[in-house]
Write a protein that binds this DNA or RNA. Structure first.
Length: 287
DNA sequence: GCCACAGTATGGACTGTCTC
DNA sequence: GAGACAGTCCATACTGTGGC
């Protein structure tokens, strides 16, 4: 419920908030950018992550108003930020409004604007850890708990960050496939928790190949669900049916069609016990 | 096809602020 | 006071789009 605090310009997360990865905040704080350049970054965050999308078409006019600057100066600063790889201009045709995204791969930001080594040292030295016990939940927004499901604890987020920063080609390809499928189908960014839940199906001893996980995401979307629990249910059902790859998925589909033609009732699915969710979480921590 | 308009890109002159 | 830097303003060029 909106508190109406916006009317008196008192910020409150009940009136809306934007989920930003800590690493981006830490990098922006350290980046040697001028005021307008930081304003441009913040405005892109607001226009993209603030609405759960990866990129948005933003005209110079909007930037100029949001940053209280002129369009010509904004144009110059955007060019500089694109050159530094802090932001990406994903589509640009003269005469058309371009699309922008933030480059989440902070290591790619130009050395001229960010001391990556220094940032890494600050993180490892615990500079960004809160020195005091938080006064309330509002005083400390923990993205992994307050803004996500309450069942998740920091180790998952650490794993996610390590994964996001992983430069290994295979891992990057796997991440791209799952993350891009998720975000394309569900039209929103994947959260660390959701990411861990899905990759757990791959990391498992008898895990699925990633194309099966991607297929499950697409099935969920087809059935009107954008919930990762639905995806997990689909994958668990396939596991019960002995599916190990895409050929298995096709086999299960054919069997389903045949049962439908014969007029048989669909196979009853065993509902997981109430503690199933708890076990899933525990298994995530074990892996 | 022509024209007006919308939108971005760029360059240069200028001003204001800060530091040494 | 000089120099560096951030930022503004203006003019111009270019391209796409839509109306006639």
């Amino acid at each position: 419920m909106p508190k109406g605090d916006r009317e008196i310009f008192k910020a409150d997360i009940d009136d809306g908030y934007t989920k930003i990865a800590d690493l981006l905040l830490e990098a922006l704080a350290m980046a040697k950018l001028n005021g307008v350049q930081k304003g441009i970054c913040l405005f892109i965050w607001r226009r993209t992550y603030g609405w759960g999308i990866k990129e948005d078409r933003i005209p110079l006019k909007d930037f100029a108003r949001a940053c209280d600057s002129s369009e010509s100066y904004i144009s110059k600063q955007i060019k500089q930020l694109v050159h530094w790889k802090v932001i990406n201009r994903t589509s640009y045709e003269p005469g058309k409004v371009p699309s922008f995204t933030i480059n989440t791969r902070v290591a790619q930001w130009d050395k001229g604007c960010l001391n990556v080594q220094g940032l890494n040292e600050c993180i490892s030295q615990g500079l960004y850890k809160c020195a005091r016990v938080p006064l309330s939940d509002c005083a400390r927004v923990d993205q992994t708990s307050a803004l996500e499901t309450q069942e998740v604890e920091p180790p998952l987020y650490t794993g996610y960050r390590q994964y996001i920063n992983n430069d290994d080609d295979n891992a990057r390809e796997e991440r791209n496939k799952i993350v891009s499928t998720f975000e394309q189908e569900f039209g929103r960014l994947i959260s660390p928790t959701e990411f861990e839940k899905l990759t757990a199906f791959i990391k498992d001893k008898n895990g699925f190949p990633e194309d099966v996980v991607c297929e499950a995401i697409k099935r969920a979307r087809l059935h009107g669900s954008t919930n990762v629990s639905y995806v997990a249910r689909v994958l668990n059902n396939w596991k019960d049916d002995g599916v190990i790859n895409m050929a298995g998925v096709e086999r299960v589909d054919k069997e389903f069609e045949q049962r439908k033609v014969k007029g048989c009732k669909p196979k009853a699915r065993a509902r997981p016990p109430d503690n199933g969710k708890k076990e899933l979480i525990q298994s995530l921590y074990r892996s």
